Simulated assay, not measured.
Amino acid sequence: MRLFKVYFLPVALILSFSSSTHAGSTPLTKIEKILVHEGDRVFIKTVDYLNPPDCAKEIKEFAIDVSTNTGKAMYSAALAAASQGKQVEIHGKHGCNYWGDREDINVIVVPF
């Protein structure tokens, strides 16, 4: 039992400081704007946006690469939520690889 206590706390601390906890995210919020851009990119602006990475602090929007199946699924989820007035929760990747000033999306949650 003592061995469990000795190793549990350090592991819990390491996991709590993973890079995904520092990525941008939204609480449950509405999508304010969806912009489909040439070059297989879609940009999403939400009402709320917490902790954007430095590269996205000015624009405060998210980017999706719709050339991939995952990107197409994310775009479909965002479009469905926006068209129905549903709130979404978005978690970013803490980077702006798809577009220089918009954070890449890691997860879109659409609660129904």
Rank of each mutant, 00 (worst) to 15 (best):
K86I: 01
E103R: 03
T21G: 01
Q84F: 13
P27H: 13
Q84I: 05
K86R: 14
P27L: 15
K93F: 02
T29M: 09
Y7V: 10
Y98E: 09
V47G: 03
D40K: 08
V6I: 15
I108P: 02
V42E: 06
F8N: 05
P53V: 03
Y75D: 09
V6K: 15
Y49C: 05
M74T: 02
T68D: 12
L3P: 00
V109P: 00
A23V: 04
E61W: 14
T21E: 09
K86F: 12
V107A: 00
N51R: 12
G95F: 00
F43H: 07
R102Q: 11
I14R: 00
A63N: 03
D48Y: 06
C96I: 04
Y49S: 05
F8S: 12
R41F: 06
P53Y: 00
Q87A: 05
G39F: 07
L50S: 11
E103N: 05
Q84P: 00
H37Y: 08
T70A: 07
D65I: 08
P10E: 02
T21L: 08
I59E: 11
A77V: 11
S83K: 10
K57W: 04
S83R: 10
G92C: 03
C55M: 07
I31V: 13
L35G: 04
L13A: 14
K5I: 12
W99F: 15
I64K: 04
R41N: 11
Y75S: 03
R102H: 15
A77Y: 01
A78S: 11
N51Q: 13
C96L: 04
R102G: 15
K45W: 14
P10L: 03
K33G: 01
H22M: 11
K45G: 11
H37C: 09
I59T: 09
P111I: 02
S19N: 09
A23E: 03
F112H: 08
L13N: 05
G85Y: 08
Y49A: 06
L13G: 13
H94L: 05
V110I: 09
D54V: 01
A73G: 01
L3S: 09
M1V: 07
V110C: 06
K72Q: 15
S20R: 04
T21C: 02
F17V: 08
H91I: 05
R41S: 09
E38N: 13
F4G: 00
G39M: 06
T21I: 12
C55R: 07
F8K: 14
E89D: 03
Q87S: 12
Y49T: 03
T26Q: 06
S18T: 11
L35P: 00
A73H: 04
A56W: 04
E103D: 05
V11F: 13
K93H: 00
R41H: 07
I34Y: 03
E38T: 14
I59C: 00
N69V: 01
P111F: 09
F112Q: 12
Y7C: 10
C96A: 07
V88D: 02
I34S: 03
E89F: 01
S67A: 14
